[in-house]
């Protein structure tokens, strides 16, 4: 049986793997991770000798979150750049109209674009496995954690890709789409803390139900993820050890126990990714929207 790949994924993979840009990007990515790893090792070593601790191995566990956070940051920057230029790039190349006259649904096109971005990220993640594995070898973590980490990166790249594709569907120029992606990042990553801060400042002294908005914040998800992997405890369980259901509300109280927050957050992030993709598909569908714009001027 032949597996039928989404034609857009197949085309994007063909085009991507044949370009030298991918090789250079992989090289730069590996170099950045290696430098991060070595710097983290140096800092741990220095800190260990400064503190006068004899056993460095206990501290080496921090190599993993350091390298992993560096990788997540690179993914966070790279994926929107790929996807934000995907639909607007097709529009600039004037291939998008042809695509829309085929039998592919707008959602398949959008989903294909996100998938190809995720697959491209998987090249990077796979290429970085030796470095990540090194931090696992000296860091004293189990291999299953590496697997969970890969799943978390895939989840995040789907989310970042959906933001990029959403921006790409709403902008005609790739540069504008990339900028819009980062504005959306700022809103999701930064402004989602505002209700919590406001409640902490003017409310009862804890986040309460306003913390639920952080379920959709990938930064909090990763913080919780690393906390669970490193200590086996929840970020909220520790910081809010004195939480009471009456103080923070029942839902927050329940979610802050065990691994529930992490899974609920993963579900929220996936749902948001789906929503962004659905909105992008709606936007690119000429039968639903886009009826107000005149056709682009003919090229000379």
């Amino acid at each position: 049986m032949k597996i039928r790949l989404n034609p857009i994924v197949k085309k994007d993979l063909h085009v991507t793997v044949r370009s030298m840009r991918l090789s250079w990007s992989l090289f730069a990515y590996e170099a950045a991770l290696t430098v991060t790893f070595l710097l983290a090792l140096l800092v741990i070593q220095q800190a260990n000798s400064y503190m006068g601790q004899g056993n460095i191995y206990a501290s080496l566990i921090y190599l993993f979150p350091t390298v992993a956070v560096a990788q997540v940051c690179i993914v966070a920057l790279y994926v929107p750049i790929i996807t934000a230029s995907s639909i607007s790039g097709e529009k600039e190349r004037q291939t998008f109209d042809i695509m829309m006259t085929t039998c592919m649904s707008p959602f398949s096109i959008v989903f294909g674009k996100v998938c190809s971005a995720v697959l491209r990220i998987l090249f990077f993640v796979a290429a970085s496995t030796p470095i990540m594995a090194l931090s696992f070898v000296v860091g004293g973590l189990s291999w299953i954690n590496l697997f969970y980490y890969l799943l978390a990166v895939i989840l995040f790249s789907v989310f970042a890709g959906s933001i990029g594709i959403f921006a790409s569907a709403f902008c005609r120029k790739s540069v504008a789409a990339v900028l819009l992606s980062f504005v959306l990042y700022f809103v999701i990553f930064g402004l989602s803390f505002v209700p919590v801060f406001l409640r902490l400042l003017f409310g009862s002294g804890n986040g309460g139900e306003s913390m639920l908005i952080l379920l959709g914040n990938p930064a909090v998800f990763f913080e919780e993820f690393f906390m669970q992997i490193m200590t086996g405890e929840s970020l909220f369980g520790r910081s809010g050890g004195s939480f009471d259901a009456d103080d923070v509300g029942l839902i927050t109280y329940i979610l802050a126990r065990g691994k529930l927050w992490m899974f609920a957050s993963a579900a929220c992030i996936l749902l948001m990714a789906f929503l962004f993709m659905a909105l992008a598909a709606w936007k690119v569908n000429p039968m639903h929207s886009g009826g107000g714009r005149r056709p682009a001027k003919k090229q000379a």
Binding site: K11, I98, T101, C103
Partner: peptide, 17 residues
Amino acid sequence: KRLIGYVPDFFGVYDNL
């Protein structure tokens, strides 16, 4: 869509295809 074949005025290309 199956009934129509469309040729636009400008041929956009993909590198490496």
